[in-house]
């Protein structure tokens, strides 16, 4: 494992911890899109089907369990916890996220590296992860006061994707036959979706102002 990959995984882990901190400690999910969180739960459930069949490393299994457990508990918190659900911006979080599922699934059926159940589900999870942030970005645009934790959460998610691209570049030059167009292109699309957010995040940081996205 190279440094970019490890840093990517750690920023991903940090993003989850920041979100759990906000939800569990402050008992608030204001500014957080349930739609995006549900998509992430589906992403991990369909990607980690191999968790009990293929052992890669203890690190790999543990991280998979963490991402599965955290994504489903976040969805549970926002839907079921009586205090947290009260802070949920339901009227603002209107992105029709179910409409992303079918196109991603059809694309996975058509474009994949191997036509097997596990492989198609894995590819589906890549396509879905690429667009899963969209409801969250739309919600951010509508939020007047983006709190620091929400801003940091989205920043860490974007950083994780950027670091994964550096990891792929590194692996491409250090490992023989390391060519994977499907995750690369969907990963690139996913990272580009954060470009706009990053711009305003750094602007607000530079000028020491509160983060606000233009509608």
């Amino acid at each position: 494992m190279n440094i970019f990959r490890l840093a990517g995984d750690m920023t991903h882990l940090a993003s989850v911890l920041v979100l759990l901190l906000k939800i569990h400690t402050i008992k608030s999910c204001a500014g957080i899109s349930l739609k995006t969180q549900e998509l992430f739960a589906i992403v991990f459930a369909s990607r980690y089907l191999d968790i009990f069949t293929d052992f890669i490393s203890l690190y790999n299994t543990l991280m998979k369990l963490i991402f599965l457990g955290s994504s489903f508990s976040i969805v549970w918190y926002i839907r079921r916890h009586k205090l947290v659900r009260r802070s949920y911006d339901k009227d603002q979080d209107t992105f029709r996220h179910y409409f992303l599922l079918l196109p991603c699934f059809i694309l996975a059926l058509l474009i994949n590296e191997k036509f097997t159940f596990k492989e198609v589900m894995w590819t589906f999870s890549l396509y879905l992860e690429a667009v899963a942030i969209l409801p969250q970005l739309v919600l951010l645009q509508r939020t007047k006061n983006i709190d620091n934790l929400t801003g940091q959460y989205v920043f860490l998610l974007g950083a994780y994707r950027g670091l994964y691209i550096l990891n792929w570049i590194y692996r491409y030059f250090t490992e023989p036959h390391y060519v994977h167009w499907i995750p690369w292109i969907s990963g690139l699309v996913q990272t580009l979706l954060y470009a706009d957010f990053f711009y305003y995040y750094f602007e607000s940081w530079k000028n020491n102002k509160k983060l606000q996205l233009p509608a």
């Binding site: 991903h12 991280m63 998979k64 991402f67 994964y164």
Partner: peptide, 10 residues
């Protein structure tokens, strides 16, 4: 091996 090498990522 080539096909599976990406499955070590998360």
């Amino acid at each position: 091996v080539e096909q599976e090498s990406l499955k070590d990522e998360l």
